[in-house]
Design a protein around this nucleic acid. Structure first.
Length: 200
DNA sequence: TGCACGATGAAC
DNA sequence: TTCATCGTGCAC
């Protein structure tokens, strides 16, 4: 066979391009998004370098009817991001000290979000990442990223090259005891046996 | 305009 | 178990 007769295919260069998850990923049932975010990579490109963490723990906040959700206060200056379009970051200060990072879910106006509680370090992370406040500190996330579109090139969530299989554990959410029966709902999800989960 | 309190983390 | 510390929402 004379191989010279065939066109030499262009070399396929596998670019390490990390595509942000599409908005349609977020515009779905919040519990589903919370579960499917497990194993995904949170990426923040800063002047100090790129920081990447594997999401290992999340909590679902379902909407205004969910007494543990900020959106249960209704549409306010603070909660307007939660009622906005999906795929945006909702970052707020808690206890005057710590930041918490959420992603808005469901169609606009729904008022739901998923709290990111813990990461497994992948790249560029030098401090602890177990717990929502530590996660934000390690990733360099603060209120300046509130309302940030996660379909951007500097701050986004992407699927890893290889999604290793894992078991998901569902538990009640942390620190929402005031939310009556909502405090008992199994809306916290984490990767079983992962050492970076905040409170196994 | 004032005040109570929280999706936490760290020290004690 | 206590405390640091302040934005937010709501009462007044």
């Amino acid at each position: 066979m004379d191989q010279t007769r065939f066109t030499v295919p262009k070399p396929r260069i596998r670019m390490p391009v990390m595509q942000p998850l599409p908005r349609s990923f977020y515009a779905r049932d919040t519990r589903l998004v919370a579960r499917e975010l497990l194993g995904m990579h949170l990426v923040h490109a800063t002047p100090a370098g790129r920081r990447v963490g594997r999401i290992v723990e999340t909590e679902a906040y379902l909407g205004p009817h969910d007494l543990a959700a900020h959106s249960s206060k209704g549409l306010t200056e603070r909660t307007k991001i939660m009622f906005g379009p999906p795929g945006h970051g909702y970052v707020y200060l808690i206890y005057g000290i710590h930041h918490c990072m959420n992603v808005v879910t469901e169609p606009p106006g729904h008022g739901a979000a998923v709290l990111l509680r813990a990461l497994e370090p992948v790249a560029g992370l030098t401090t602890r990442t177990q717990g929502p406040g530590l996660l934000c500190r390690a990733m360099g996330i603060d209120r300046r990223l509130n309302g940030h579109d996660l379909l951007s090139e500097h701050f986004f969530i992407t699927a890893p090259d290889i999604l290793a299989p894992f078991k998901i554990v569902a538990r009640p959410r942390i620190g929402v005891d005031y939310a009556r029966h909502w405090a008992k709902r199994l809306l916290r999800f984490y990767i079983r046996d992962n050492p970076f989960v905040s409170q196994p």
